[in-house]
Structure formats: C-alpha cells, structure tokens
C-alpha cells in the first residue's frame, strides 16, 4: 500500500498543479493578513475565500486526476494487488497532497499570524474539508464512466455545497418563519460540511452575537464540548461514507 501511495504522490508532485495551488493559497493568506491591521479580521476574510477555494480545487483536481490515472489503475488491477489497496492508496495519496498543500499554503500563515483557538479551528476544518472533497470527487469519478459527465457532476456538487444549499435553507427559513426552526437548523447543517465548518469557525470568533437567536442556539450547541465532538464526527462521516461507497463501486467496476 505504501508503495502505491508513494507512486501516486510522486505523480501528483510531478504535474505541478498542486504546487501552484499551494503557492496561490500562500499568496492569498499572506496578503490578507498583511492588508488587515487586526489579524482576527484577516482570519474572517480568509475564511470566506478558503471555504470557496478549498472544496473547488480539491474536488476538481481529484476528479480529473482519477480520470487521468485510468491507465495507471488498469495497469495495477492486472497486478497481484487488492482492488481495495489500489483505491485506498489513490485516495490517501490525493488526500495527503491536498491536505499538505492546504497546510503549507494556509496553515503556516495562520499559525504565524493568528495562532489562537480560532486559527487552529480554521486549520483543522480546512484540512478536513480538503479530505472530504477528495472523497466526494472520487465517488463522483467512479460512478460516471464519462469524463465530461463526471467533472460536470463535480462542478454541480460544488455549486450545491457552496451556494444552492444555503439558498434552500434560506427558502425554508422564510417559508416557515412562523415556526421555531432553530433546532432543526442545527441538524440541517450536518448535511453540508462547508456550512458546518463555517459555523464552527464563526462561533470561535466573537461575531456569533450578530447571528441573533439562531446564533444563540448554535452557540449553545456547537460551543459546548459535546457539540464540538459531534460536529467533528459529522465531518469525519463525510469522509468515511463517500470513500466507502466509492470503494464498493470500484470493487465491482470493469476496467
């Protein structure tokens, strides 16, 4: 397994896109921290950029990478290797590279400028988001044989997680404004890792007071130890379930 992860990572490093992504993240984070006089404010600006860029790049890159390594997969499948080993190695290689890129690009500036609990929370969720979206992209890539279709699905999924989901939530909130939905909202957030991460970070900052009654409920839940643990479990589930489903699909795939 280690050997294949090694070859996947060497291959990813060789095509330089991940390197460019790292430099890009590094540039953005350093610029933002230097623009704002208060680094806590800088963190808030960085949050919004990261929550858009990290899922997009992780997903698109992983999906395209899986399609482009179809030759590699075909070669490996005819060798004495378990399919499970091959697929999980590919996943680990991609996840490690994306997480490492995030750590160098955004993690190190955060640690340098804002090594507070908020900063650590952002680092942790960013790393988890990188891995989550690698898993989701691999699921999409193994389901769709056609490359254009697979990448299209990935873009739609990204749109859903970053924009459409919020729209749906707003719609529900307005339609049922007369009902107490605060507790249901806490549950609904579990269906979107991006929103969950955003709330986890925002609650660490002191801007949650601006979110009104819902914010108070959120603070009550996510601020507490158990809420925090549950949230991280939900994020981990977002990694495990797509990865497991894609593995099951890959085990029966014809190459």
């Amino acid at each position: 397994m280690k050997k294949i992860i090694k070859y996947v990572i060497i291959d990813i490093l060789r095509n330089k896109i991940v390197l460019a992504y790292t430099v890009f993240l590094l540039l953005i984070s350093v610029t933002i921290f230097n623009l704002e006089d208060n680094s806590a404010k800088g963190l808030l600006s960085l949050l919004n950029i990261i929550l858009i860029i990290v899922p997009l790049v992780s997903m698109l890159f992983s999906a395209i990478y899986v399609y482009n390594s179809s030759e590699f997969l075909e070669l490996l499948v005819s060798q004495p290797l378990k399919r499970k080993t091959i697929w999980l190695s590919l996943f680990m290689g991609l996840a490690a590279s994306m997480a490492f890129a995030f750590f160098i690009g955004a993690g190190i500036p955060i640690l340098l400028y804002e090594a507070t609990p908020t900063g650590f929370m952002m680092l942790g969720t960013g790393l988890l988001l990188s891995v989550i979206f690698v898993a989701i992209a691999m699921l999409a890539a193994v389901m769709a044989r056609d490359k254009a279709k697979g990448i299209g699905v990935v873009i739609l999924l990204w749109l859903y997680f970053s924009i459409i989901f919020d729209g749906l939530i707003l719609f529900v909130l307005f339609q049922f404004a007369d009902y107490p939905l605060e507790k249901i909202m806490v549950g609904a957030v579990a269906f979107n890792p991006i929103d969950l991460s955003r709330i986890l970070i925002l609650l660490k900052m002191d801007v949650s007071a601006l979110m009104g009654y819902t914010g108070a409920i959120f603070k009550d839940f996510f601020g507490a130890q158990t809420g925090l643990i549950i949230s991280f479990c939900v994020l981990i589930t977002w990694i495990v379930i797509p990865a497991w489903l894609s593995l099951r699909k890959f085990n029966h795939k014809d190459l």
């Binding site: 060789r14 390594s69 004495p80 290797l81 378990k82």
Partner: peptide, 21 residues
Amino acid sequence: DWKYRARIGYMPQIGRYPENM
C-alpha cells in the same frame, strides 16, 4: 483471491501506461 495474479504475465491488446512516466 488476488495473489494468483502474481503467477500471470499479461500483455494487453492496447497497453495503457501512465503517460508521464
């Protein structure tokens, strides 16, 4: 079983290999 593939040498009709290796 997957170990049996160690005993097979396979030459595909269209050999597909990682292009940048």
